[in-house]
Design a protein around this nucleic acid. Sequence first.
RNA 1: UGCCCGAUAGUAUAAUGGUAGUACGACAGAUUUUGGUUCUGUUUGUCGAGGUUCGAAUCCUCGUCGGGCAACCA
Length: 566
Amino acid sequence: MPHPHSILTFAIMSEIKSLNFIEEVIEADLQTGKYKSIVTRFPPEPNGYLHIGHAKSICLNFGLALEYGGYTNLRFDDTNPVTEETEYVDSIKEDVKWLGFEWKNELYASDYFDNLYQFAVELIRKGLAYVDDSTAEEIAEMKGTPTEAGKESSFRNRSVEENLDLFQRMKNGEYPDGSRTLRAKIDMTSPNMHLRDPLMYRIKHAHHHRTANTWCIYPMYDFAHGQSDSIEKVTHSICTLEFIPHRALYDWFIEKLDIFPSHQYEFGRLNLTYTVLSKRKLLQLVNDGYVSGWDDPRMPTISGVKRRGFTATALRDFCDRIGVQKRENLIDVSLLEFCVREHLNKISLRRMVVFDPLKIVITNYPLMNEEMLRGEDNPEDANSTHREVPFGRELYIEQEDFMENPPKKYFRLSPGNMVRLKNAYIIRCESVIKDDSGKISEVLCTYIPESKSGSDTSGLKVQGTLHWVSIAHAVSAEVRLYDRLFRVEDPNSEEGDFKNYINPDSLQVVRNVYAEPCVANAKFSERYQFLRKGYFCLDKESSEDKMIFNRTVTLKDAWVKEQKKG
RNA sequence: UGCCCGAUAGUAUAAUGGUAGUACGACAGAUUUUGGUUCUGUUUGUCGAGGUUCGAAUCCUCGUCGGGCAACCA
């Protein structure tokens, strides 16, 4: 008997959570007993890197299996040897794991080449497939157009025996590439172009990343995918909208072969504002040098966002929130940023780092003195650990945190005004020192000794709190600040080349920032919030003598908004 | 102008013939030793026209708009 608690939880959950259309189908299938449990698959072609569009599919396929107690196979759709490489297989496996999912079986469409060949022979025997000697051009010509019926090939009515013989000889390598194909005999007048005698096999004398030179004929996607699903007893085969017209063919092969009836369901692929998510376009960004590589932190690839500092938790949460539907969508990238911030806020260690230093001197702080102050690592954590932050007479604050003639609502440091230095004291600006050119070289302040953080008896209230770093103790680092790669909301729908809309300022490098000492102990596994600056993580290009941090995402900033209004 | 898919606030997503709700965004306020976080409030929506019905976002009809389909790619 189930624990009463879990029943309650389930009741509440099902009341709150609404089902997407695929979940509805699955629940119905489970309820009617059509399936006892479900099997899904994630079927990438190993010809490129995964991006966050794939993440949506991964979360869907693996998430469904987890939700309903089934399992998911990772199946590489490797039916085209000329585009596929083992390097991609490895990166795909790594990315799926990083996202936090485990596949039941690691499989390859190429594992089924023998089965598929037998299936083809079977269809030939049934008079449902034939070898066509037409050229690619002739086949395209005879295909007709969406508004115009196709014409039957003159090879369409070859005998079963001849087809069997020819197909075997195709397999044996007797014919050159492109000289013959195996086609399904369906209907050249079908309004669905995919049913006009689609190609099942083509000749390619090419090396395959797994089967090497065993084969010189390779099945087309349509002749491989459904049957692969069927062999694996995939119950719910989920793909994107553009495969809708393929479904009739998917079903046709399964029906004629009389094999396990897998079913295909289609959802709308992810589109993100200010982003492109097509392999072709991402490849161009890499090849044309707009980014440093597939894992450039500005790239929407899994490896890119991972290097940027996004967490798998945030990505999964994002995929959860965007939902699943049978319609086109363009998700606002601010939702992604929200998910990333929400997670990072909970786990990041707070650190103080000054990017653009302005020297301040605490004139009433004892000469040669210094002290260690305590700073919370994470105020979101009730049991937060602490680190020690050295304080001294000479400090850096940000240039932007001081103004000689401040505008209204400026809460920061200005002559005569007081601010708190985070984790330290309240200070007052007494005067400024300028160099010959009139530029402020340092700001002279006094501090209120009894205002020390944690034991403040001053009774003073100030509006601003600044981050700072002791000049004598500061450690150096480089930070890389990223902005969106495109300057228009939907680069895919703009006129002309999408590359015309690239944001020229998507990367800003600050070679030397001043960080509090404990930043020197930064770890790759940890996430940081540089106070008031954003979330950061260590970049892989960091070395022993040079730390490099990527800005994952900024903090929300009400002040910039305020300024824009003015 | 053949076939297929779709249309709910700015964006995304619920409501499955019975009060149009949620999240993000935006705006306003409270709290705050991060102009962060948190909390509260406000704003804005059923593509159009008919029909069925006591009652339609939901069902039907006709439009409109968007997307897809003519690779020996997946």
